[in-house]
Design a binder for these strands. Structure first.
Length: 493
RNA sequence: GCCCCUAUCGUCUAGAGGACCAGGACGCAGCCCUUUCAAGGCUAAAACUGGGGUUCGAAUCCCCAUAGGGGCACCA
């Protein structure tokens, strides 16, 4: 199954934190590379100086590593096709842009921003399609010479064919044709000497010997542009596969961090990768979840390991239709992974969560608590209300009213707690089994339901309406402290 | 406005002409278990956008309509 000619890349631009949509694109590329035994390349497309955000590259590399995606070539690891940061390859792009000019396939355009803006306004007013009017494409030799003599700044524009059509093949959708009249004489090289995305992308994919381009669906309209560029250069175009977009839970538009990043219930949906980290999702669950959006394992299976995914991943199972971000499925899946997780590993994840919430964590206690927490949490922060009280420095007894259970009064509650105290105090072994063995008959004797008696004890020992099972909790709290708390409750009645 | 893509339960999806009165999962509802909350088990409701073709036969192929999405920068 190994094909070392498979070379794919993830090519984000460093404009801020990783977006989950980008992560999905990266993941599919990575899975494809690993499945075929090819190379996964990380390339940084920093050709827009205005949008560059410092530290972005680090956020990207850390994010990919967190999810377990390693790259064979790129920043931090190097490679034979580098550099892998586009701002370090400017000469290459300039060379090939100029080559196109020499070949008569591109031209210098001296139009100012003002003229372009005015043109756009005019087109808009006349309800014409927007686009460059190719003014500088037909400049005479004299006009050109004059512009050069004046030292006017210029961009290099591609001379797009104006007739016929361009057909590109998409591995998921088949052939897609575009009327060349729709295509623009787009800018290849900007005034500042930096390439645009289109030029840099084509040049790099060619020289980095990329075999398959897997990118998001919003790039489909630029595929014919790229195709014409490859043709002009005389290069073969890599295979294309446009991955479906992920839509907002609101159903309106692409998944974005703004406006519609909420579910119908008004819940904030995580979108940036760090928001998933902060939200208490684990990487294994995120990866498993992402592979279920736009791709399916088959065999009616929803839960599987990365290794299984790598073995099975292929483009034929990619669904070309866009999909709404199914966040509730991630919650469920995260719960599945948390339940299956090794106790020590979960302890390492939970410890900082409790500490951040202001609790001082005793590792021994945490390890005892984890089995109680496991089936009750879907995300890490949910452990705080469920288990935080185990680490509270000072016990705050529940108010009297809350000790009294349904259809009971203060006197009855007090009497029941006193009897329970006596039985527990007499126990030779402080285990949940022993406690239950002693107290269940008591409930019956007192004519109370298990819910009434245990409810009162829960309130007395944990001061919580909701908690892990009573006796297991008391086991963790310890004999002396549990008995002390029951005494406290009795005294308050 | 123009161009392009897509279309199965509320949602994520299975389905590559007969094995489909359409399967799985999440969510939702009910029941069981149960000391609260979960987890777990069981059951239920829930979909092939519409219309034309092609074919002995269409969720699957073609066309049109509709709907949703994407794109039309010296941003990627």
């Amino acid at each position: 199954m190994s094909d070392n000619r498979v070379r794919v890349r993830f090519a984000p631009s460093p404009t801020g934190p990783l977006h989950i949509g980008g992560v999905r694109t990266a993941l599919f590329n990575w899975l494809f590379a690993r499945h075929h035994g090819g190379a996964f390349i990380l390339r940084i497309e920093d050709t827009d100086q205005k949008r560059y955000v410092a530290d972005s590259i680090q956020l990207i590399t850390e994010g990919l590593r967190w999810l377990g995606m390693d790259w064979d070539e790129g920043p931090e690891v190097g490679g034979e096709y580098g550099p892998y940061i586009q701002s370090e390859r400017l000469e290459l792009y300039q060379k090939w842009a100029n080559w196109l000019v020499e070949q008569g396939r591109a031209y210098r355009c001296y139009c100012t921003e003002e003229r372009l803006d005015a043109l756009r306004e005019q087109q808009k007013a006349a309800k014409q399609d927007p686009g460059y009017d190719r003014h500088c494409r037909t400049l005479s030799a004299d006009e050109r010479a004059q512009n050069e003599a004046e030292g006017k700044p210029y961009v290099i524009r591609f001379m797009m064919p104006t007739e016929g059509s361009t057909t590109v093949n998409d591995l998921l959708r088949g052939d897609i044709s575009f009327d060349n009249k729709q295509l623009q004489d787009l800018v290849l090289l900007k005034t500042d000497g930096y390439p645009t995305y289109h030029l840099a992308n084509v040049v790099d994919d060619h020289f980095m010997e990329i075999s398959h381009i897997m990118r998001a669906e919003e790039w489909i309209p630029s595929a014919p542009i790229h195709k014409n560029l490859y043709d002009a250069f005389g290069w073969d175009m890599p295979q294309l596969a446009h991955l479906p977009v992920i839509l907002n839970p609101s159903g309106k538009g692409k998944l974005s961090k703004r406006s519609a990043g909420f579910t119908e219930g008004g819940r904030k949906v995580p979108v940036l990768l760090y928001e998933f980290l902060d939200g208490g999702y684990v990487p294994e669950a995120i990866v498993n979840f992402l592979t279920n959006v736009g791709w399916s394992f088959g065999e009616d299976r929803e839960v599987f390991t990365v290794q299984e995914t790598i073995e099975r991943f292929d483009l034929s199972r990619v669904n070309p239709a866009g999909s709404i971000f199914p966040i509730e499925k991630l919650d469920w899946l995260n719960g599945v992974y948390l339940r299956e997780m090794d106790d020590h590993k979960l302890a390492a994840l939970l410890r900082p969560v409790f500490e951040k919430a202001g609790y001082e964590v005793n590792l021994d206690v945490l390890l005892q608590v984890i089995p109680l927490l496991k089936p009750r949490i879907k995300t890490l922060p949910e452990a705080i209300p469920m288990g935080g009280f185990f680490f509270a420095e000072e016990f705050k007894p529940a108010p009297k009213e809350e000790l009294i259970q349904k259809k009971m009064d203060a006197a009855g509650t007090k009497a029941a707690l006193e009897r329970a105290y006596a039985l527990l105090n007499a126990l030779t072994e402080w285990s949940h089994a022993a406690m239950e063995g002693a107290l269940r008959p008591l409930a019956e004797e007192l004519g109370l339901s298990a819910g009434q008696l245990f409810g009162a004890l829960r309130m007395a020992t944990t001061a919580q309406q909701v908690s892990p099972p009573l006796f297991e909790s008391m086991e963790v709290i310890g004999r002396a402290e549990s008995l002390r708390r029951i005494q406290l409750a009795i005294a308050s009645l």
